[in-house]
């Protein structure tokens, strides 16, 4: 029976108290991940990607809303919920240097989740560790080494092997390749593609890099100031983005094969999650904003699985390109 999606988050909000002010890191996010589906969350620094990820995997409680994994509510305060989720969700963080305990051998680091979940006896666990090392393309002899002697790419493979130890249904990867050189990044991205060919494995892949995301994700959510402003299939997002922020992001990203066409500039100051603008949170920086945008929060426009939180969604119009001029005007 698997009528419910693998992961379903409804109305997630997260507020932090900073001094006497309140910082809204996540503001009303709905997100569903299907079984075996690869979903990416992109957005600029501070948009709330990591906070959302921590909430989805039960590492932190939302201020509002609820997360269900396979139909059951995720409750970070319950040890039972944490344990059962820990077995079914693997997590990989950005920093391949900080995320491994320097005192443990590689084999021991990978074995740890197996021990915590009382998985098999010592010899079964040893076989499992060897299997995992192989699955991520590492020499089994590496198991005896400490993380210190490994390259960045090797460490990130170890982190992935550990996250895969209990054969999870979902792998959450928070900027897993951002700190790596391109040649190593390519190895990890290829590995992530291969892993999904061999098993039913869903990804929540967090990144700020739209080119990297294109290699991994089937569906993409774009975050701005704690909100998902647009979500669509990868083809739809790269081919027919409709939210002005997504359009600005895509037009700013560099392409290997040539200069940018015409960049859509963001106007004004970077946003503050403490003093959030009213109406559409993007309106002070938006090239398309009209009076209504500052007044009313946009209603989500839905076209099949493509959702856009904007009053005036749509591709860049020729008239807009003319108005913004070559390279936009931002200074």
């Amino acid at each position: 029976m698997s009528a419910s999606p693998l992961l379903e988050a409804r109305g997630i909000a997260k507020r932090y108290r900073v001094g006497r002010a309140v910082l809204t890191a996540v503001d009303g996010v709905d997100l569903t991940i299907g079984r075996g589906e690869a979903v990416a969350v992109v957005g600029e620094s501070g948009s709330g990607k990591s906070t959302l990820a921590r909430i989805l995997v039960g590492l932190e409680a939302p201020s509002q809303g609820e997360v269900r994994f396979d139909g059951r509510i995720v409750d970070p305060t319950s040890r039972g919920s944490r344990l059962s989720l820990g077995a079914r969700v693997g997590v990989v963080f950005q920093d391949p240097y900080g995320s491994l305990n320097p005192r443990l051998s590689v084999a021991r680091a990978i074995e740890e989740p197996l021990i915590v979940h009382r998985w098999g006896d010592a010899s079964a666990r040893r076989r499992r560790v060897a299997e995992l090392l192989e699955a991520v393309g590492l020499d089994p002899d590496l198991g005896a080494r400490r993380p210190r002697g490994l390259s960045g790419g090797q460490r990130q493979r170890v982190a992935i092997a550990r996250a895969l130890a209990l054969d999870p249904e979902l792998l959450v990867l928070d900027e897993p390749v951002s700190a790596l050189d391109v040649s190593v990044q390519a190895q990890i991205l290829n590995l992530l593609a291969d892993l999904r060919r061999a098993r039913t494995l869903a990804y929540l892949f967090i990144s700020h890099d739209l080119a990297v995301v294109r290699q991994v994700a089937e569906r993409i959510a774009v975050m701005y100031l704690g909100r998902i402003v647009e979500i669509a299939s990868a083809d739809e997002l790269y081919g027919a983005a409709a939210h002005p922020y997504t359009l600005a992001l895509l037009s700013s990203a560099a392409e290997v094969e040539g200069a940018r066409a015409s960049r859509i500039p963001l106007q004004g100051d970077p946003p503050s999650p403490i003093e959030r603008p009213g109406g559409c949170p993007f309106h002070p920086r938006c090239f398309r904003a009209r009076e209504r945008c500052g007044r009313e929060d946009p209603v989500v426009a839905t076209d099949g699985s493509h959702r856009v939180a904007c009053w005036y969604p749509g591709p860049v119009e020729p008239e807009e390109v003319r108005r913004l001029g070559p390279g936009g005007r931002d200074v």
């Binding site: 391109v182 040649s183 390519a186 991205l189 739209l210 990297v212 294109r214 290699q215 094969e257």
Partner: peptide
């Protein structure tokens, strides 16, 4: 050349990235 073919593209998804 390997560096170029290891670089992900915004324009399209590559079947496989080159690795070194």
């Amino acid at each position: 050349r390997a560096l170029l073919h290891a670089t992900p593209r915004l324009e399209r998804k590559l079947p496989r990235l080159a690795t070194i």
